[in-house]
Structure formats: C-alpha cells, structure tokens
Nucleic acid binder design. Structure first.
Lengths: 183, 183
DNA sequence: TTCCTATATGTAAATATAGACATATAAGCT
DNA sequence: AGCTTATATGTCTATATTTACATATAGGAA
C-alpha cells in the first residue's frame, strides 16, 4: 500500500467512481497515468480494500464502478493517523529560473507568459469545481460545509488550489514586470 | 538528459559545486537523493557537459568540485527555449484532507499543526537563504539584482518560496480555525 | 474520409526515484 | 566507548512512474 493507493481509497470514501474517473480526479493532488491506476485498482480489489460493479453503458465503453469495503475504510482510518510525508514539488520552470540571467529576455518572457496562461486555465477549472461542489445535494444553503460534511475536504482543497493559484499568478506577473519587453 | 540533469547544469551555471552541495541545493526545486545525483554527475561528466576538480580537504573527505563545460552551457541554452513541463505537486496531506470528514477531530488538528510547524521551519530557512544572498559579493547596495545579475534567478525563487509558504501557512491556520478543539 | 478527442480498460517496457548497503573523517553527545 | 550528525562519494536493489502498445465506441473537426 503506497501513497497513491491511499489516495484512491480517500477519493472512494467520498463517492463511488470508475477507474477512469479516479484517474482524472486524483491528478490535481497526485499526478498519475491510467497505466499506474488500473493495475493498482486491480490489486486493491484483489486484497479486498475495494470492490467494483460492472456498469454497461450505451454510447460509451462499459465501466467498473469502485467503492470502499469495510477493510478499505479501516485502512483509511489507520493511514490518517500515521505521520504525513512532506510535500514534493517538481517544477521544471523553477530550475530554468535559476539560470535565467544567462537566457534571452524573450525566452524568459515567453516561459513566464506560458505559465501565466497555464495558471489562468487552472483557475477556470478550480472555479468550475467550486461551482460544481455548491450544486451537489447536501451543500449548505448558507456558509461553509461543516467538518463532518462529506464535501468538507473537497471544499478545503479547492480553496487551497485557488489560493496557491493566486499566489503563483502574482509571482509570474511580478517577474514579468522585472523583465520589460526589449522592443 | 532528463529534467534533473538540466537542473544540475542550471545550478552549475551560477557557481561551481560539489555533488554533495548540488544534492542539498536542488532539494527545494527538485527533490532527489544522493544515490540519484552521483551517477547522473558521472554520466554528465563522461558526456562532457561538466568537468570536475578534485579538492582535498582537511577535517572532511575530499570532494569533486564540478563546473560547466562549453557543451554544458550550450545544452542549457537549448533547454531554456524548449517548452516547459507543468509543475507536479505530490502531497500526502492533500489526499488525507479529502477524507477528513471521516477522521477524528484530534487527528486532523494534529496533521495540520504538524504541517504548520513544517512551514514555520521552512520559512526560517528561506529567510536565512535570503539573508545569505544579500551578503554575496556583487549584491546591489539598494534595490533588487538586475535580470542580468547571476543571482537574479536565485532571488526570484527564494521570493517565490516565501510567498507560497505564506499562502500555505494561511490555509493551514484557516482550516484549524474551522476545527475548534473538542476539549 | 481521415484525424483528433473523450470515454473506458488494460499490458509491457523503459526510466526515474527511493531505500538500503558501504566506507571514511571529525565533532559533539551520553 | 558507543551513538548520532554532518561531510563526502559511491553502488545495488526495489519501487514508482512514464511511455508506448493495444482495443473499442462515438462525436466533432478538417
């Protein structure tokens, strides 16, 4: 049981999902390809942490909808109380910034403009997710979901993503302001 | 040549470092163990991107001090103009937050308090690095280093780290305020 | 019609990363 | 005297992760 496994269980604690859904939803928190997810789900199913139901679909391939077993729920609780690993950020751009004084002004500006566009697109997605959350049944009519609310965690994470997004956007704009166009 | 390789070249563009130094300095931007760094440096040296000088030391083991070759400098410039990969953040805590509504209040508070302590310690290190930068020779007496200054990138990255640190700290405190102690 | 994207699931091979084993010196702690 | 930490470099093995190969249906774009 590695961290990604627990991440999948954690998502399944909130709702049942197909492997494809899980793959898409875990991206913002733990990037992984489907080639890593599917074998892991098969292993978790074999070891009785999760089970699946085959759901035939029209217009789309059939899917396996996974849900937590009792053993899975217990594993999740045990994991929660274990020490948490430090976050690991790997960003090629930060490595490039290190040698920025040796690069062309235009190259540097382009790199930052690209990152800014990336953040803008991400921001759009986060706002969409927030709107989606607020339409989910059980969402409180006023204020935030309580800590016991199943959507509490998802809400906190979306807020976190938006906060980080704003900070990163601000940083990119600041750096661009230090690199005036050389027209 | 993978991203870590370019990261090492990027650090060496700024100054000469031993493998041990490189390992320590690249951590905030691209976490890697010495067991990954040393073989990579040997490969980069074999392929003439970097060279080293054996430096005997008293009181400490001898070291290899690496520096960029002309080929390394060219590779760095070419890399800079290539499209930059998206950042990848892997944080076990974010996965735990997803299922936080199913965990004990105390466990959740402990997790966040631990993270807060981690951020505080990191903040101390970043401030130290900033102070260190300002003592380096060539640092401008007033204002920021110019974009052409060799320390420009390091300064931008330290500022970025501090900004993110503040945002993450703020988020942790906000979540803790939503989880009052159940004394 | 051909290409690309999204949905959906899988496997095989290559690469990246982490953990353990190995060695050496010196300082500080118990 | 033995333990831990920091400096310093390396290898070997296990695991994690990515890339490529595979297949199937449907919709939209060119």
């Amino acid at each position: 049981m590695n961290t990604l496994s627990y991440g999948l269980l954690s998502l399944l604690a909130q709702s049942s999902y197909s492997g494809y859904d899980l793959m898409l939803r875990i991206q913002p928190f733990w990037p992984a390809k489907h080639s890593q997810i599917y074998p892991l789900l098969a292993k978790l199913e074999q070891e009785d942490y999760i089970r699946f139901e085959l759901v035939p679909q029209r217009d789309k391939p059939d899917k396996k909808v996974y849900s937590l077993t009792g053993k899975g729920q217990e594993a999740l609780k045990d994991w929660f109380d274990q020490p948490t690993a430090e976050p690991a950020l790997r960003d090629e751009m930060m490595l490039k910034v290190f040698c920025m004084s040796y690069a062309d002004r235009e190259s540097a500006r382009k790199m930052l403009a690209d990152r800014l566009a990336y953040h803008k697109e991400q921001r759009r997605k986060y706002e969409h997710k927030l709107a989606e959350l607020k339409e989910r049944e059980g969402w409180p009519e006023a204020g935030l979901p309580a800590p016991s609310h199943p959507l509490f965690g998802a809400y906190l994470l979306t807020r976190k993503a938006i906060m980080s997004n704003e900070t990163n956007t601000e940083w990119c704009k600041w750096v661009l302001s230090l690199l005036p166009e050389a027209d």
